[in-house]
Design a protein around this nucleic acid. Structure first.
Length: 476
RNA sequence: GGUGGCGUGGCCGAGUGGCUGAGGCAACGGCCUGCAAAGCCGUCCACGCGGGUUCGAUUCCCGCCGCCACCUCCA
């Protein structure tokens, strides 16, 4: 086994700690998924990327991994502090369609984007709206423990009943209290959060369910606790999400879960992904101008170039986004794939004919960096070296790259050489132009040959002269 | 204002108390080419400012300046 002991930074303990599974040989991961009322931005996708890498690493290390990521299709209010409109309701009303249609649309968009970015399919993808009973049950358990109180607005978690509340995010509750923000009337402490919200007496919501406390809908935080518990058990190994969730959402998840389940720690390791810095384009989702996977596609960029781009920075560092940055990542990726395909085809895909004396050091390096809190930039540096190291035979090279692709997820086994011709030459007119140019070159009529090259260039096609003659391909 | 973090070469971005100063992109030179393109080889370039600790700091400590994130919608 090439993968050494895996270490990860745990937000709760604020330290890099060894990964020690609750059950030998198995690993359970829960990732906060999308609130499906709007497109998922490239920033959102970064926080999905980290668990994908982690999951692939664990699989490569031999663990049987269960990866759960939820769909928030109800209850996520405009404010994480349980105020304002429900995001789903707002979006549905604005478009005059049902909340379910809104959810279905954006869930599909998200799933497609995940695939385009080379992410493995989730093992379980539970929707909050389909787990109302589990959520109610968890609230009831908390109620039975006397940790809740009912006000006009709904059922709230009483933070004062959980002394460890502030520990997770190292909060200063006194300070929180002192901010004096306008809060929901009746809340006893600013940090108290909704477990079940009651529908307003004078109106009907698009999404509402009956409950022991009246018709309403679950608070946003309870869904993750309920679904993670259902699919991963009362305690599980790894919970991931964006750093913005540490203070409120994950703090609340810990509170309600550790109380209702009477466990500690509920989650062994919390992995939080830093933000992608979108600079001037970090515009709120509601404003419309958002950076999504389609934005890249419109720019003629392969979504996998973005995957490569994400590998270049550590997940705990803010990463500066720019289209040019993704483009340069695309160039680097193209060269890697070019070498990988050449090596693969030279040995007909064989991965067991390498010389361990040459390949093992690289394997140790690559997996060692990933096992060291997912140091993907370092791992990627190994990939770049392997792709070009002249000391390696094709068998060595392909054996290594095929191994690394378990985590890279570039689909190297099925990739086509990006430097090879595409189907442009299938167009008879283009094929004729190429033939004309070949004839002109044979006659040493360079002016004519260059003219034809310019004609094709104007159409976005580039000519690559290979030993087997010229080929045309769409410039990327 | 509170809390956390950052400031590395043209750009992105790792990492480290000294050793051989990641990697990618770009640029430049070379090979290849009719010339190019693509590809390959090579070169180049660094640690915000001022103190301190140390035999030695980009790496630790203090101050300053600048930037970012969260606290308020966001992953």
């Amino acid at each position: 086994m090439s993968v050494p002991a895996i270490h990860l930074y745990d937000t709760r303990r604020r330290a890099v700690v060894p990964f020690e599974p609750l059950v030998e040989g198995k690993a359970g991961i829960y990732t906060c998924g999308p609130t499906v009322y709007a497109p998922q931005t490239l920033g959102n996708m970064r926080s999905q990327f980290t668990p994908d890498v982690l999951r692939r690493l664990l699989i490569a290390a031999g663990y049987e991994v269960t990866f759960v990521t939820n769909i928030t299709d109800v209850g996520h209010l405009v404010s994480d502090a349980d105020e304002g409109d429900d995001k789903m309701e707002k979006s549905a009303r604005a478009q005059g369609i049902s909340a379910a249609d809104v959810a279905a649309h954006w869930t599909e968009q998200w799933a497609t984007d995940r695939r385009r970015l080379g992410m493995l399919e989730p093992d379980v993808r539970p929707a909050a709206s389909e787990h109302i009973a589990e959520q109610i049950a968890m609230v009831q358990a908390l109620e039975a423990q006397g940790r809740t109180y009912l006000i006009d607005d709904g059922v709230y978690f009483d933070v004062s009943t959980f002394p460890a509340y502030a520990d997770f995010a190292h909060l200063n509750l006194d300070e929180l209290e002192a901010t004096g923000r306008v809060e929901t009337a009746g809340k006893r402490h600013p940090a108290d959060f909704a477990l079940w919200k009651l529908s307003p007496p004078d109106s009907t919501r698009l999404q509402e369910w009956d409950s022991p406390w009246g018709v309403g809908f679950p608070g946003w935080h309870i869904e993750c606790s309920a679904m993670a518990t259902k699919y991963l058990g009362e305690r599980f190994d790894i919970h991931t999400g964006g750093v913005d969730h540490i203070r409120v959402h994950h703090t609340n998840e810990v509170a309600q879960s550790e109380c209702s389940l009477d466990v500690h720690p509920w989650v062994s390791i919390w992995v939080h992904t830093e933000f992608l810095d979108l600079k001037g384009r970090k515009i709120s989702k509601s404003a419309g101008d958002v950076l999504v996977v389609d934005t890249l596609v419109e720019e003629g960029i392969d979504p996998l170039a973005f995957r490569y781009f994400l590998f270049q920075a550590h997940y705990r560092s803010q990463q500066e986004f720019s289209i040019e940055g993704v483009r340069s990542a695309g160039t680097a990726l193209r060269r890697i794939v070019h070498h990988a395909v050449a090596a693969r085809d030279a040995v007909d895909g064989a991965v067991n004919q390498d010389d361990p004396a040459r390949t093992q050091p690289y394997r140790d390096e690559f997996w060692g960096h990933l096992a060291d809190d997912l140091n993907t930039p370092r791992a990627l540096a190994v990939v770049a070296t392997v792709a070009r190291d002249a000391q390696l035979s094709a068998a060595d090279r392909w054996s290594l790259l095929a191994d690394f692709d378990q985590v890279l997820g570039f689909g190297l086994a099925d990739a086509t050489d990006p430097e090879a011709a595409d189907d442009s030459a299938a167009d008879p007119r283009i094929a004729a132009l190429l033939a004309e140019r070949t004839a002109a070159r044979a006659a040493k009529d360079w002016a004519e040959a260059d003219r034809i090259r310019d004609v094709l260039a104007a159409e976005g096609l580039e000519i690559v002269d290979t030993p087997d003659g010229p080929v045309a391909r769409r410039r990327t």
